[in-house]
Design a protein around this nucleic acid. Structure first.
Lengths: 232, 232
DNA sequence: CTTTACTATACAACTATACAACTTTTAATT
DNA sequence: AATTAAAAGTTGTATAGTTGTATAGTAAAG
Protein backbone atom coordinates (compact mmCIF):
# COMPACT_ATOMS: atom_id res chain seq x y z
CA UNK A 1 0.00 0.00 0.00
CA UNK A 2 1.18 3.50 -0.79
CA UNK A 3 2.92 5.56 1.83
CA UNK A 4 0.49 8.43 1.74
CA UNK A 5 -2.31 6.04 2.53
CA UNK A 6 -0.48 4.54 5.49
CA UNK A 7 0.26 7.98 6.83
CA UNK A 8 -3.40 8.79 6.39
CA UNK A 9 -4.31 5.76 8.48
CA UNK A 10 -1.73 6.65 11.11
CA UNK A 11 -3.04 10.18 11.42
CA UNK A 12 -6.59 8.96 11.54
CA UNK A 13 -5.65 6.72 14.42
CA UNK A 14 -4.07 9.65 16.25
CA UNK A 15 -7.21 11.66 15.69
CA UNK A 16 -9.50 8.94 16.99
CA UNK A 17 -7.23 8.63 20.03
CA UNK A 18 -7.83 12.30 20.63
CA UNK A 19 -4.15 13.11 20.28
CA UNK A 20 -5.31 16.03 18.20
CA UNK A 21 -8.50 17.43 19.62
CA UNK A 22 -11.48 19.09 17.92
CA UNK A 23 -10.87 22.75 17.28
CA UNK A 24 -7.12 22.40 17.71
CA UNK A 25 -4.43 22.68 15.10
CA UNK A 26 -2.42 19.81 13.75
CA UNK A 27 1.36 20.15 13.56
CA UNK A 28 2.31 21.97 10.39
CA UNK A 29 2.81 20.10 7.15
CA UNK A 30 6.52 20.71 7.52
CA UNK A 31 6.67 19.12 10.96
CA UNK A 32 4.52 16.20 9.89
CA UNK A 33 6.62 15.57 6.83
CA UNK A 34 9.71 15.39 9.04
CA UNK A 35 8.02 13.08 11.47
CA UNK A 36 7.07 10.61 8.77
CA UNK A 37 10.21 11.18 6.76
CA UNK A 38 8.46 12.12 3.54
CA UNK A 39 8.10 15.13 1.31
CA UNK A 40 5.55 17.76 2.14
CA UNK A 41 3.45 16.88 -0.89
CA UNK A 42 3.08 13.33 0.31
CA UNK A 43 1.78 14.57 3.64
CA UNK A 44 -0.57 16.89 1.80
CA UNK A 45 -1.97 13.94 -0.04
CA UNK A 46 -2.63 12.11 3.22
CA UNK A 47 -4.20 15.19 4.72
CA UNK A 48 -6.37 15.61 1.66
CA UNK A 49 -8.03 12.30 2.40
CA UNK A 50 -8.86 13.47 5.89
CA UNK A 51 -10.12 16.78 4.55
CA UNK A 52 -12.36 14.90 2.13
CA UNK A 53 -13.84 13.03 5.05
CA UNK A 54 -14.59 16.29 6.79
CA UNK A 55 -12.30 15.45 9.69
CA UNK A 56 -9.81 18.22 8.94
CA UNK A 57 -9.92 21.57 7.25
CA UNK A 58 -7.12 23.94 6.48
CA UNK A 59 -6.67 27.69 6.56
CA UNK A 60 -4.02 29.16 4.34
CA UNK A 61 -1.32 30.84 6.35
CA UNK A 62 -2.67 29.50 9.58
CA UNK A 63 -2.69 25.74 9.73
CA UNK A 64 -4.75 22.61 9.66
CA UNK A 65 -7.56 22.39 12.12
CA UNK A 66 -9.42 19.40 13.45
CA UNK A 67 -13.03 19.86 12.57
CA UNK A 68 -15.17 20.39 15.60
CA UNK A 69 -18.20 18.17 15.37
CA UNK A 70 -19.41 19.14 18.79
CA UNK A 71 -22.90 20.52 18.83
CA UNK A 72 -23.04 24.24 19.41
CA UNK A 73 -25.57 24.80 22.13
CA UNK A 74 -26.58 28.40 22.38
CA UNK A 75 -26.89 29.92 25.81
CA UNK A 76 -28.40 33.37 25.68
CA UNK A 77 -31.23 35.26 27.21
CA UNK A 78 -33.70 32.67 26.00
CA UNK A 79 -32.50 29.08 26.03
CA UNK A 80 -34.84 26.61 24.35
CA UNK A 81 -33.66 23.01 24.09
CA UNK A 82 -35.74 21.78 21.17
CA UNK A 83 -35.49 24.98 19.18
CA UNK A 84 -31.73 25.07 19.66
CA UNK A 85 -31.42 21.65 18.12
CA UNK A 86 -33.98 22.06 15.38
CA UNK A 87 -32.21 25.24 14.27
CA UNK A 88 -29.14 23.16 13.46
CA UNK A 89 -31.24 20.58 11.63
CA UNK A 90 -30.81 17.94 14.28
CA UNK A 91 -33.56 15.90 15.94
CA UNK A 92 -34.29 16.63 19.60
CA UNK A 93 -35.95 14.27 22.03
CA UNK A 94 -36.70 14.50 25.72
CA UNK A 95 -37.23 11.59 28.09
CA UNK A 96 -38.14 11.77 31.74
CA UNK A 97 -35.93 10.02 34.23
CA UNK A 98 -37.96 10.73 37.34
CA UNK A 99 -40.07 13.25 39.17
CA UNK A 100 -40.58 14.00 42.82
CA UNK A 101 -42.56 16.36 44.99
CA UNK A 102 -41.00 17.41 48.26
CA UNK A 103 -40.21 20.34 50.46
CA UNK A 104 -37.81 22.89 49.09
CA UNK A 105 -34.29 22.99 50.34
CA UNK A 106 -32.92 26.27 51.60
CA UNK A 107 -31.05 26.96 48.42
CA UNK A 108 -33.97 26.02 46.22
CA UNK A 109 -36.32 28.21 48.20
CA UNK A 110 -33.95 31.09 48.05
CA UNK A 111 -33.42 30.83 44.33
CA UNK A 112 -37.09 30.37 43.57
CA UNK A 113 -37.93 33.13 46.03
CA UNK A 114 -40.47 30.99 47.81
CA UNK A 115 -41.06 30.03 51.37
CA UNK A 116 -38.95 27.09 52.41
CA UNK A 117 -42.04 25.29 53.70
CA UNK A 118 -43.50 25.16 50.24
CA UNK A 119 -43.26 22.08 48.13
CA UNK A 120 -41.37 21.90 44.92
CA UNK A 121 -41.60 19.68 41.88
CA UNK A 122 -38.34 18.09 40.79
CA UNK A 123 -38.01 16.71 37.29
CA UNK A 124 -34.99 15.01 35.84
CA UNK A 125 -34.82 14.59 32.10
CA UNK A 126 -32.44 13.39 29.46
CA UNK A 127 -32.14 15.38 26.25
CA UNK A 128 -31.14 13.53 23.13
CA UNK A 129 -29.67 14.97 19.97
CA UNK A 130 -30.19 12.70 16.99
CA UNK A 131 -31.00 9.97 19.44
CA UNK A 132 -27.74 10.37 21.36
CA UNK A 133 -28.26 11.23 25.02
CA UNK A 134 -26.06 14.22 25.68
CA UNK A 135 -27.87 16.50 28.09
CA UNK A 136 -29.21 15.86 31.54
CA UNK A 137 -31.38 18.40 33.32
CA UNK A 138 -32.60 18.61 36.87
CA UNK A 139 -35.40 21.14 37.31
CA UNK A 140 -36.91 22.55 40.46
CA UNK A 141 -40.25 24.32 40.13
CA UNK A 142 -42.64 25.66 42.69
CA UNK A 143 -45.39 23.10 43.10
CA UNK A 144 -47.60 25.64 44.71
CA UNK A 145 -47.42 28.00 41.78
CA UNK A 146 -47.71 25.30 39.08
CA UNK A 147 -49.56 22.35 40.64
CA UNK A 148 -50.41 20.80 37.25
CA UNK A 149 -46.96 21.23 35.79
CA UNK A 150 -45.90 17.61 35.73
CA UNK A 151 -49.13 16.28 34.21
CA UNK A 152 -48.84 18.67 31.31
CA UNK A 153 -45.10 18.29 30.95
CA UNK A 154 -45.42 14.53 30.79
CA UNK A 155 -47.47 14.89 27.62
CA UNK A 156 -45.75 17.86 26.08
CA UNK A 157 -42.16 16.97 27.03
CA UNK A 158 -41.31 20.64 26.59
CA UNK A 159 -40.86 23.36 29.14
CA UNK A 160 -41.81 26.04 26.67
CA UNK A 161 -45.06 24.35 25.67
CA UNK A 162 -45.95 23.45 29.22
CA UNK A 163 -45.48 26.98 30.45
CA UNK A 164 -47.47 28.35 27.52
CA UNK A 165 -50.41 26.14 28.49
CA UNK A 166 -50.02 27.38 32.03
CA UNK A 167 -50.24 30.96 30.82
CA UNK A 168 -46.54 31.85 30.77
CA UNK A 169 -45.93 32.95 27.20
CA UNK A 170 -42.32 33.98 27.64
CA UNK A 171 -39.46 33.42 30.05
CA UNK A 172 -35.78 34.09 30.11
CA UNK A 173 -32.62 33.53 32.04
CA UNK A 174 -31.86 35.50 35.13
CA UNK A 175 -28.36 34.11 35.23
CA UNK A 176 -26.25 31.14 34.21
CA UNK A 177 -23.23 29.66 35.92
CA UNK A 178 -20.96 27.29 34.07
CA UNK A 179 -18.71 24.81 35.82
CA UNK A 180 -17.07 21.51 34.97
CA UNK A 181 -17.56 18.11 36.54
CA UNK A 182 -16.49 14.56 35.98
CA UNK A 183 -19.07 11.98 35.02
CA UNK A 184 -19.62 9.31 37.63
CA UNK A 185 -20.67 5.85 36.60
CA UNK A 186 -24.38 6.63 36.75
CA UNK A 187 -24.10 9.76 34.67
CA UNK A 188 -21.73 8.06 32.27
CA UNK A 189 -24.29 5.37 31.74
CA UNK A 190 -27.13 7.80 31.23
CA UNK A 191 -25.21 10.12 28.94
CA UNK A 192 -23.38 7.49 26.96
CA UNK A 193 -19.95 8.77 27.84
CA UNK A 194 -17.00 7.35 29.71
CA UNK A 195 -16.53 7.55 33.43
CA UNK A 196 -14.59 10.71 34.31
CA UNK A 197 -15.45 12.32 31.00
CA UNK A 198 -15.74 16.05 31.45
CA UNK A 199 -19.22 17.43 31.74
CA UNK A 200 -20.23 21.04 31.39
CA UNK A 201 -22.63 21.94 34.15
CA UNK A 202 -24.87 24.98 34.00
CA UNK A 203 -26.81 26.24 36.97
CA UNK A 204 -29.44 28.80 36.17
CA UNK A 205 -32.74 30.46 36.96
CA UNK A 206 -35.45 31.07 34.41
CA UNK A 207 -37.85 33.87 35.24
CA UNK A 208 -40.97 35.29 33.69
CA UNK A 209 -41.55 38.78 32.33
CA UNK A 210 -42.31 40.02 35.82
CA UNK A 211 -38.88 38.83 36.93
CA UNK A 212 -40.40 36.15 39.11
CA UNK A 213 -38.37 32.92 39.13
CA UNK A 214 -40.01 29.95 37.45
CA UNK A 215 -37.40 27.27 37.67
CA UNK A 216 -34.09 26.74 39.40
CA UNK A 217 -32.25 24.16 37.40
CA UNK A 218 -29.06 22.44 36.56
CA UNK A 219 -28.05 21.00 33.23
CA UNK A 220 -25.12 18.73 32.42
CA UNK A 221 -23.71 18.59 28.90
CA UNK A 222 -21.32 15.93 27.62
CA UNK A 223 -18.21 17.96 26.84
CA UNK A 224 -17.05 15.67 24.08
CA UNK A 225 -20.15 16.26 22.04
CA UNK A 226 -21.40 19.67 23.02
CA UNK A 227 -19.90 23.10 23.31
CA UNK A 228 -21.70 25.98 24.87
CA UNK A 229 -21.96 29.14 22.81
CA UNK A 230 -22.50 32.06 25.11
CA UNK A 231 -24.41 34.98 23.64
CA UNK A 232 -25.12 38.50 24.71
CA UNK B 1 28.54 -11.91 -20.47
CA UNK B 2 25.28 -9.96 -20.34
CA UNK B 3 25.31 -6.19 -20.50
CA UNK B 4 23.54 -5.64 -17.21
CA UNK B 5 26.12 -7.73 -15.40
CA UNK B 6 29.03 -5.85 -16.94
CA UNK B 7 27.43 -2.57 -15.89
CA UNK B 8 26.97 -4.01 -12.41
CA UNK B 9 30.66 -4.83 -12.19
CA UNK B 10 31.60 -1.44 -13.52
CA UNK B 11 29.46 0.32 -10.96
CA UNK B 12 30.74 -1.86 -8.18
CA UNK B 13 34.28 -0.93 -9.12
CA UNK B 14 33.35 2.76 -9.00
CA UNK B 15 31.83 2.25 -5.59
CA UNK B 16 34.84 0.44 -4.18
CA UNK B 17 37.02 3.20 -5.56
CA UNK B 18 34.93 5.62 -3.52
CA UNK B 19 33.84 7.44 -6.67
CA UNK B 20 30.42 7.41 -5.06
CA UNK B 21 30.66 7.85 -1.31
CA UNK B 22 28.38 6.53 1.43
CA UNK B 23 25.50 8.88 2.07
CA UNK B 24 25.74 10.37 -1.40
CA UNK B 25 23.46 9.90 -4.35
CA UNK B 26 24.25 8.08 -7.55
CA UNK B 27 23.45 9.78 -10.85
CA UNK B 28 19.84 9.16 -11.80
CA UNK B 29 18.83 6.08 -13.74
CA UNK B 30 18.20 8.29 -16.73
CA UNK B 31 21.72 9.69 -16.66
CA UNK B 32 23.28 6.28 -16.08
CA UNK B 33 21.32 4.72 -18.91
CA UNK B 34 22.56 7.41 -21.24
CA UNK B 35 26.12 7.00 -20.04
CA UNK B 36 26.10 3.25 -20.70
CA UNK B 37 23.97 3.61 -23.79
CA UNK B 38 21.28 1.22 -22.65
CA UNK B 39 17.65 1.33 -21.72
CA UNK B 40 16.69 2.44 -18.27
CA UNK B 41 15.41 -1.03 -17.39
CA UNK B 42 18.79 -2.53 -18.09
CA UNK B 43 20.41 -0.11 -15.69
CA UNK B 44 17.75 -0.91 -13.16
CA UNK B 45 18.67 -4.54 -13.41
CA UNK B 46 22.30 -3.75 -12.66
CA UNK B 47 21.35 -1.54 -9.78
CA UNK B 48 19.09 -4.23 -8.39
CA UNK B 49 22.09 -6.49 -7.86
CA UNK B 50 23.81 -3.79 -5.84
CA UNK B 51 20.66 -3.15 -3.85
CA UNK B 52 20.46 -6.84 -3.04
CA UNK B 53 23.96 -6.64 -1.66
CA UNK B 54 22.92 -3.76 0.58
CA UNK B 55 25.37 -1.40 -1.06
CA UNK B 56 22.72 0.79 -2.65
CA UNK B 57 19.33 1.95 -1.51
CA UNK B 58 16.79 3.76 -3.63
CA UNK B 59 14.16 6.21 -2.56
CA UNK B 60 11.29 6.79 -4.92
CA UNK B 61 11.27 10.30 -6.24
CA UNK B 62 14.60 11.07 -4.72
CA UNK B 63 17.38 8.91 -6.09
CA UNK B 64 19.75 6.12 -5.26
CA UNK B 65 21.90 6.38 -2.18
CA UNK B 66 25.15 4.65 -1.30
CA UNK B 67 25.15 2.76 1.98
CA UNK B 68 27.81 1.53 4.31
CA UNK B 69 28.31 -1.99 5.40
CA UNK B 70 27.55 -3.45 8.72
CA UNK B 71 28.12 -1.29 11.76
CA UNK B 72 28.91 -2.85 15.12
CA UNK B 73 26.77 -1.22 17.77
CA UNK B 74 27.85 -1.96 21.31
CA UNK B 75 25.23 -2.73 23.91
CA UNK B 76 26.63 -2.93 27.37
CA UNK B 77 26.06 -1.44 30.77
CA UNK B 78 26.45 2.04 29.36
CA UNK B 79 25.07 2.57 25.88
CA UNK B 80 25.89 5.92 24.30
CA UNK B 81 24.80 6.50 20.72
CA UNK B 82 27.18 9.22 19.63
CA UNK B 83 30.17 7.78 21.44
CA UNK B 84 29.51 4.36 19.97
CA UNK B 85 29.70 5.77 16.49
CA UNK B 86 32.56 8.18 17.05
CA UNK B 87 34.60 5.29 18.44
CA UNK B 88 34.41 3.61 15.04
CA UNK B 89 35.34 6.81 13.28
CA UNK B 90 31.92 7.34 11.81
CA UNK B 91 29.80 10.49 11.94
CA UNK B 92 26.71 10.38 14.16
CA UNK B 93 23.69 12.62 13.79
CA UNK B 94 20.39 12.79 15.59
CA UNK B 95 17.19 14.30 14.24
CA UNK B 96 13.91 14.66 16.06
CA UNK B 97 10.84 13.17 14.50
CA UNK B 98 8.32 14.32 17.05
CA UNK B 99 7.62 14.91 20.69
CA UNK B 100 4.51 14.62 22.72
CA UNK B 101 3.41 15.11 26.28
CA UNK B 102 0.62 12.94 27.52
CA UNK B 103 -0.45 10.74 30.38
CA UNK B 104 1.56 7.60 30.98
CA UNK B 105 0.18 4.29 29.90
CA UNK B 106 0.07 1.49 32.42
CA UNK B 107 3.20 -0.14 31.09
CA UNK B 108 5.10 3.12 30.89
CA UNK B 109 4.14 4.06 34.43
CA UNK B 110 5.17 0.66 35.70
CA UNK B 111 8.54 0.72 34.00
CA UNK B 112 9.31 4.28 35.02
CA UNK B 113 7.99 3.55 38.50
CA UNK B 114 5.74 6.58 38.45
CA UNK B 115 2.07 7.14 39.11
CA UNK B 116 -0.03 6.45 36.04
CA UNK B 117 -1.65 9.83 36.37
CA UNK B 118 1.62 11.58 35.79
CA UNK B 119 2.54 12.95 32.43
CA UNK B 120 5.35 11.62 30.32
CA UNK B 121 7.41 13.13 27.57
CA UNK B 122 7.67 11.07 24.42
CA UNK B 123 10.47 11.75 21.96
CA UNK B 124 11.04 9.97 18.69
CA UNK B 125 14.38 10.38 16.99
CA UNK B 126 16.28 9.05 14.04
CA UNK B 127 19.95 8.27 14.44
CA UNK B 128 22.14 8.55 11.39
CA UNK B 129 25.50 6.96 10.83
CA UNK B 130 27.53 8.67 8.14
CA UNK B 131 24.36 10.35 7.00
CA UNK B 132 22.48 7.07 6.59
CA UNK B 133 19.41 6.78 8.85
CA UNK B 134 19.73 3.43 10.61
CA UNK B 135 18.39 3.78 14.13
CA UNK B 136 15.02 4.88 15.36
CA UNK B 137 14.37 5.51 19.04
CA UNK B 138 11.20 6.14 20.97
CA UNK B 139 11.86 7.45 24.46
CA UNK B 140 9.49 7.85 27.37
CA UNK B 141 10.61 10.08 30.23
CA UNK B 142 8.81 11.36 33.27
CA UNK B 143 7.74 14.89 32.52
CA UNK B 144 7.26 15.58 36.18
CA UNK B 145 10.82 14.62 37.04
CA UNK B 146 12.40 16.36 34.04
CA UNK B 147 10.05 19.16 32.98
CA UNK B 148 12.73 20.93 30.92
CA UNK B 149 14.04 17.82 29.24
CA UNK B 150 12.77 18.50 25.76
CA UNK B 151 13.90 22.12 25.59
CA UNK B 152 17.43 21.10 26.46
CA UNK B 153 17.39 17.98 24.33
CA UNK B 154 16.24 19.97 21.33
CA UNK B 155 19.45 21.97 21.49
CA UNK B 156 21.83 19.26 22.63
CA UNK B 157 20.42 16.38 20.60
CA UNK B 158 22.06 14.05 23.06
CA UNK B 159 20.61 12.16 25.99
CA UNK B 160 23.92 12.08 27.79
CA UNK B 161 24.45 15.82 27.50
CA UNK B 162 20.88 16.64 28.39
CA UNK B 163 20.96 14.53 31.51
CA UNK B 164 24.29 16.02 32.52
CA UNK B 165 22.77 19.49 32.35
CA UNK B 166 19.87 18.22 34.42
CA UNK B 167 22.29 16.97 37.04
CA UNK B 168 22.41 13.31 36.11
CA UNK B 169 26.09 12.67 35.52
CA UNK B 170 25.84 8.97 34.87
CA UNK B 171 23.23 6.42 33.98
CA UNK B 172 23.21 2.83 32.90
CA UNK B 173 21.03 0.05 31.68
CA UNK B 174 18.77 -1.79 34.05
CA UNK B 175 17.93 -4.32 31.37
CA UNK B 176 17.70 -4.74 27.62
CA UNK B 177 15.34 -6.94 25.66
CA UNK B 178 16.08 -7.73 22.06
CA UNK B 179 13.40 -8.83 19.66
CA UNK B 180 12.90 -8.85 15.91
CA UNK B 181 10.30 -7.01 13.90
CA UNK B 182 9.46 -6.34 10.31
CA UNK B 183 9.65 -2.83 8.93
CA UNK B 184 6.34 -1.43 7.82
CA UNK B 185 6.26 1.06 4.99
CA UNK B 186 6.58 4.09 7.24
CA UNK B 187 9.54 2.69 9.14
CA UNK B 188 11.11 1.46 5.92
CA UNK B 189 10.91 4.93 4.51
CA UNK B 190 12.37 6.51 7.61
CA UNK B 191 15.16 3.99 7.99
CA UNK B 192 16.08 3.57 4.32
CA UNK B 193 15.36 -0.11 4.24
CA UNK B 194 12.94 -2.32 2.40
CA UNK B 195 9.46 -3.08 3.57
CA UNK B 196 9.53 -6.23 5.70
CA UNK B 197 13.25 -5.89 6.26
CA UNK B 198 14.14 -7.29 9.65
CA UNK B 199 14.65 -4.75 12.39
CA UNK B 200 16.36 -5.41 15.69
CA UNK B 201 14.27 -3.91 18.43
CA UNK B 202 15.62 -3.27 21.87
CA UNK B 203 13.42 -2.40 24.79
CA UNK B 204 15.23 -1.09 27.79
CA UNK B 205 15.30 1.03 30.90
CA UNK B 206 18.06 3.44 31.76
CA UNK B 207 18.42 4.25 35.41
CA UNK B 208 20.54 6.59 37.47
CA UNK B 209 23.08 5.71 40.14
CA UNK B 210 20.30 5.46 42.72
CA UNK B 211 18.63 2.82 40.53
CA UNK B 212 15.74 5.12 39.77
CA UNK B 213 14.47 4.71 36.20
CA UNK B 214 15.13 7.64 33.90
CA UNK B 215 13.84 6.51 30.58
CA UNK B 216 11.82 3.61 29.25
CA UNK B 217 12.66 3.35 25.61
CA UNK B 218 12.65 1.33 22.48
CA UNK B 219 15.20 1.40 19.70
CA UNK B 220 14.96 -0.15 16.27
CA UNK B 221 18.09 -0.99 14.29
CA UNK B 222 18.18 -1.85 10.60
CA UNK B 223 19.33 -5.44 10.75
CA UNK B 224 21.03 -5.35 7.39
CA UNK B 225 23.39 -2.59 8.38
CA UNK B 226 23.82 -2.88 12.10
CA UNK B 227 24.75 -5.72 14.33
CA UNK B 228 24.40 -5.50 18.05
CA UNK B 229 27.45 -6.41 20.06
CA UNK B 230 26.39 -7.48 23.54
CA UNK B 231 28.90 -6.92 26.31
CA UNK B 232 29.11 -7.87 29.92
C1' DC C 1 8.70 -23.32 -28.92
C1' DT C 2 10.13 -21.29 -24.73
C1' DT C 3 13.17 -18.59 -22.10
C1' DT C 4 16.27 -14.75 -21.47
C1' DA C 5 18.04 -10.20 -22.42
C1' DC C 6 16.90 -5.98 -23.84
C1' DT C 7 14.05 -2.05 -25.74
C1' DA C 8 10.07 1.17 -25.85
C1' DT C 9 6.40 3.57 -23.78
C1' DA C 10 3.32 5.13 -20.35
C1' DC C 11 1.70 6.24 -15.98
C1' DA C 12 1.71 6.36 -10.80
C1' DA C 13 3.98 7.72 -6.61
C1' DC C 14 7.16 10.54 -4.54
C1' DT C 15 10.80 14.22 -4.20
C1' DA C 16 12.82 18.81 -4.81
C1' DT C 17 12.35 23.53 -5.31
C1' DA C 18 10.28 27.86 -5.80
C1' DC C 19 7.01 31.33 -5.16
C1' DA C 20 2.43 33.38 -4.00
C1' DA C 21 -1.10 34.28 -0.56
C1' DC C 22 -2.03 34.58 3.94
C1' DT C 23 -1.55 34.45 9.20
C1' DT C 24 0.89 34.79 13.40
C1' DT C 25 4.54 36.36 16.07
C1' DT C 26 7.91 39.67 17.27
C1' DA C 27 9.85 44.00 17.77
C1' DA C 28 9.90 48.80 17.46
C1' DT C 29 7.67 52.99 17.80
C1' DT C 30 4.60 56.25 19.22
C1' DA D 1 -0.67 50.54 26.40
C1' DA D 2 -1.85 50.65 21.73
C1' DT D 3 -0.27 50.86 16.82
C1' DT D 4 2.47 49.72 13.20
C1' DA D 5 5.84 47.41 10.57
C1' DA D 6 8.80 43.77 9.77
C1' DA D 7 9.92 38.94 10.10
C1' DA D 8 8.89 34.34 10.30
C1' DG D 9 5.86 30.69 9.61
C1' DT D 10 1.88 28.34 7.21
C1' DT D 11 -0.92 26.61 3.33
C1' DG D 12 -1.80 26.72 -1.90
C1' DT D 13 0.02 26.07 -6.40
C1' DA D 14 3.09 25.14 -10.20
C1' DT D 15 6.88 22.81 -12.49
C1' DA D 16 10.33 19.59 -13.23
C1' DG D 17 12.70 15.52 -11.99
C1' DT D 18 13.21 10.72 -9.82
C1' DT D 19 12.06 5.86 -8.91
C1' DG D 20 8.39 1.97 -9.18
C1' DT D 21 5.48 -0.72 -11.98
C1' DA D 22 2.92 -2.49 -15.82
C1' DT D 23 2.50 -3.73 -20.62
C1' DA D 24 4.07 -4.75 -25.13
C1' DG D 25 7.40 -5.88 -28.34
C1' DT D 26 12.03 -7.62 -30.62
C1' DA D 27 15.86 -10.59 -31.06
C1' DA D 28 18.81 -14.26 -29.82
C1' DA D 29 19.86 -18.62 -27.51
C1' DG D 30 18.61 -23.06 -25.72
Amino acid sequence: MSIYYQIYESLKKDLSNNLYKPGEKLPSEKVLSKRFGVNRHTIRRSLQLLKNEGILFSKRGSGIIVHDNRFKYKIGKRVRFSQNILNENYVPETTILRSEIRKASKIEAKNLEINSKHEILLIETIGKINNVPSIKTKRVISNKRFPDFFDIFQKQLSITKTLKILGVNDFFRKNTLVTAEQADSIQANLLHCKINSPLLKTTYINQDLNLIPIEYSQTWFVGERIQLALEN
